[in-house]
Every structure is written in C-alpha cells, then in structure tokens.
Simulated assay, not measured.
Amino acid sequence: MRVSPVAVAGARQAIPFAAAGLVVSLSFGISARAAGLPALATIAMSVLVYAGSAQFAAVAILGQGGSVSAAVLAAVLMNARYIAMGLAIGPSLKGGRVRRALEGQAVVDASWAMANRGDGRFDRHTLFGSSALQYLTWQTGTIIGVVAGGALPNPEALGVDAVFPAFFLALLVGELRDAEAAAAAIGGAIVAVVGGLLAPPGIGILAASAIALVGVRRPRTAAVRA
C-alpha cells in the first residue's frame, strides 16, 4: 500500500506534538493506575477515547468515587468542540457519510490545525499522517505508564496527584488569549473548585465541563489532543 508523501510530511510536522503526547499519556497511565483503574481499562480508554482532557476528567471523577455515568458525561462535554471541528473538515473528506465519519476519527487538535489550508479547506492526507504518529505515541505512553504505575508500590510518591490539576491548568492558560474563551475557562475553573469542595464526587468537573461549552464558538488548537 502506497503512503502519500503528504501524509509522511504531515507525520514529520507532528513530531513535536507526538512527543508531548507521549509524556502526557505516560502520566495518564500512571495516574489512572494510581486512581484504581484496571490496566486493561486504562489502555482501552486511550485506544477508544484518545482525548487527553476527556480521559483525565473521567479518571479524576472515578478516582474521587464518582459514578461511571458522570465520568462518561464529563468526557462527552469535554470533547464537544469536535462537533464544530468535524463540521468544518467534513466537506474536505472523501466518500459518503460512513466513509467521511470514519475518516473524521483522525481529527485531533494539532492535526486539524496542520491540515487547515486557511481557505476553508483541509488536506486529508496531512490529517491522516499527523494523527497516525500522535495516536501511536499516545498508546505507547499509556502502556508504559500503566506498566510503571502497576509496578511501583506507591505511584503517588511520583507526584501523580498533581497531574490532574496541572494538566487542566495548562489548558486554562492556553485559553486566556481569547476574551470569551478566557471568561468561560475561568468560570469553569471556579465551578470545578467550588463543586469539588461542596458537591458529591465528580459533580464539580461535570458542571465545569458544561459551563465551558459557552466558550466553544469556534475550533481552537492545542499542542495535544485535549
């Protein structure tokens, strides 16, 4: 099977994002194991969900004793931005609805940005190449993190309890460049903190995810799929 040179170029462009994803997913694997998730469930989440913010939110809720339904709903809300991104890139994908839906699974933040030609069109081969490399490193990092988290007698000693807030703080800082997004992000952060202190486990993150949707008016990019 011949690989498009554009896809290869896209993979090369994605190397910095893939490297960052490796580090984040390794932290996720260790953190998920420290939160009590089984190894296979942690790996399956990375394989099927493949979204940093959604995965960290779900594990944070489950680690606090929250319900599976609350974790799933929070993950869905965190990824709502991909609806807008999918609508934007849809006309640039090939085939009927089913094929376009399958090709659209390659959309991640960095790849979506790299594939954007700037005139409303997207290069699908760039999308596929850049996403493929990032997916590979995300799974690799998760597996290494799961193995390390399961082998260590006290993974919390590595400071993995700080991974969740640090990850979401990084996302928050990235949104402060836009006034509307900053207002939504700060509002969500406040609700998450207050809800975490006063509400049952998981409710704070769930409410913050819903409030953050106010800022989802146009697709934005991030270094890793968040």
Rank of each mutant, 00 (worst) to 15 (best):
D119V: 09
A106Q: 05
A184N: 02
R97K: 12
A39N: 07
L26I: 02
I190A: 15
I186C: 11
A185Q: 01
A20Q: 02
A192K: 01
S130N: 03
P200A: 14
S31A: 14
V8P: 00
D123M: 05
T140E: 04
L171Q: 07
A210I: 13
A207D: 08
G86H: 05
R117Y: 03
G36S: 08
A132V: 10
A181P: 02
L136R: 02
A179W: 13
V47W: 14
T137M: 13
A54H: 07
A35D: 14
G149F: 00
R225V: 08
L37I: 12
P38K: 06
A20N: 03
A115Q: 00
Q105T: 12
V68E: 13
A32D: 05
V72H: 04
Q134P: 03
A60N: 09
A132E: 04
W112I: 00
G149S: 01
A7I: 11
L136G: 13
A182G: 05
L48C: 14
D123Y: 10
A157H: 11
Y82A: 09
A212W: 02
E175R: 07
G187M: 01
V216W: 15
S27C: 15
V108N: 11
V194Y: 10
M114A: 09
A9F: 15
V23A: 14
G95D: 09
S31P: 04
G65L: 05
F122L: 08
L127S: 06
T137H: 12
V173K: 00
L172E: 01
P153T: 09
S111A: 15
G96A: 10
R217V: 14
A208T: 02
L213T: 12
V98D: 04
L169M: 12
A35C: 13
L40H: 09
F28I: 03
V147R: 08
L77F: 15
Q139N: 13
G187D: 07
A71I: 07
L136H: 06
G195Q: 08
F28R: 01
A71E: 03
R99V: 07
V98K: 05
V193I: 15
A182T: 08
L26E: 05
P16D: 12
T140Q: 01
A34H: 06
A199I: 12
R99Y: 08
R81A: 05
V193G: 02
M45Q: 08
T142Y: 01
M85E: 05
R117E: 14
S53N: 01
R124A: 14
L73W: 04
L93D: 09
D161R: 11
P219R: 01
N154P: 04
Q64G: 12
R217G: 14
A181Q: 13
L62H: 10
S92L: 06
V147I: 15
T126P: 01
A18V: 12
A181I: 04
A106E: 05
I15P: 03
V72T: 11
S46R: 00
A185C: 13
G196K: 05
A57M: 10
E175Q: 10
S67R: 07
W138L: 12
G52F: 00
Y135Q: 11
G66H: 07
V76L: 14
V76E: 07
R12A: 15
M85W: 06
P153E: 08
V146C: 08
A11D: 06
G145W: 03
V24F: 02
V108S: 08
S25F: 13
A182C: 04
V8H: 06
R81Q: 09
K94N: 13
S69C: 08
